[in-house]
Computed example of a mutant assay.
Amino acid sequence: MKGLTIALPVFCLIAGMAMAQGGAHFIENWDADGDGSVTLDEAREKRMDVFYMFDADENDHLDAAEYDLFDETRAADIAANDMPKSFKGPANALKREFNDADGDGLVSKAEFRDGTEAWFVKLDHDGNGVVTLRDFQRMKEGG
């Protein structure tokens, strides 16, 4: 099963943001230019990489089975990383309900891509347009 083989390593890129080290793993994996921050454009690009990894049949939609694998992989990573409660909001923004804008049970490439901005805003706790380790510290502190 292509998705399962790829899912666990790829998902580390997503939920690694919740590690106790204050998001260092997230920054390391999502910061394309290595400047210590993640921009909205970088987040869009990485989310699309994730989408393609779970789109096993390459039809530009995540169907129920593909999204179930995505959900299971995310849940396992959350549990494995002992995520603080404050980090679950950003992780939940990757759920099917968040991304299935038209409610048809499928998440299209466009829906997943278009959900990036709302998801990014949840990560950018200080509202400065970039996600840094400071944002993860604020999440951890609940502020």
Rank of each mutant, 00 (worst) to 15 (best):
residue 2 K to M: 07
residue 2 K to F: 00
residue 4 L to V: 12
residue 6 I to P: 00
residue 9 P to R: 12
residue 9 P to E: 04
residue 11 F to N: 05
residue 18 A to E: 06
residue 19 M to I: 06
residue 19 M to W: 01
residue 20 A to W: 04
residue 20 A to L: 01
residue 23 G to H: 11
residue 23 G to Q: 04
residue 24 A to R: 12
residue 24 A to Y: 08
residue 24 A to P: 01
residue 29 N to F: 02
residue 30 W to K: 01
residue 33 D to S: 13
residue 34 G to L: 11
residue 37 S to W: 00
residue 38 V to L: 03
residue 41 D to S: 14
residue 45 E to P: 00
residue 45 E to K: 10
residue 51 F to C: 02
residue 51 F to H: 03
residue 53 M to P: 00
residue 57 D to N: 12
residue 59 N to G: 03
residue 64 A to R: 03
residue 66 E to L: 06
residue 68 D to E: 14
residue 69 L to S: 03
residue 70 F to S: 11
residue 71 D to Y: 03
residue 72 E to Q: 13
residue 73 T to A: 13
residue 73 T to C: 15
residue 76 A to Y: 13
residue 79 A to N: 09
residue 82 D to F: 02
residue 83 M to H: 05
residue 95 K to Y: 08
residue 101 A to K: 11
residue 101 A to S: 13
residue 101 A to I: 10
residue 103 G to M: 07
residue 103 G to N: 15
residue 105 G to N: 11
residue 106 L to M: 12
residue 107 V to D: 02
residue 108 S to A: 06
residue 109 K to N: 05
residue 110 A to C: 04
residue 110 A to R: 11
residue 111 E to W: 02
residue 118 A to V: 13
residue 120 F to M: 14
residue 125 H to E: 15
residue 125 H to T: 13
residue 127 G to D: 10
residue 128 N to W: 04
residue 128 N to H: 08
residue 128 N to P: 07
residue 131 V to N: 07
residue 132 T to M: 05
residue 133 L to G: 15
residue 133 L to K: 08
residue 139 M to V: 09
residue 139 M to G: 06
residue 140 K to H: 03
residue 141 E to N: 09
residue 143 G to Y: 00
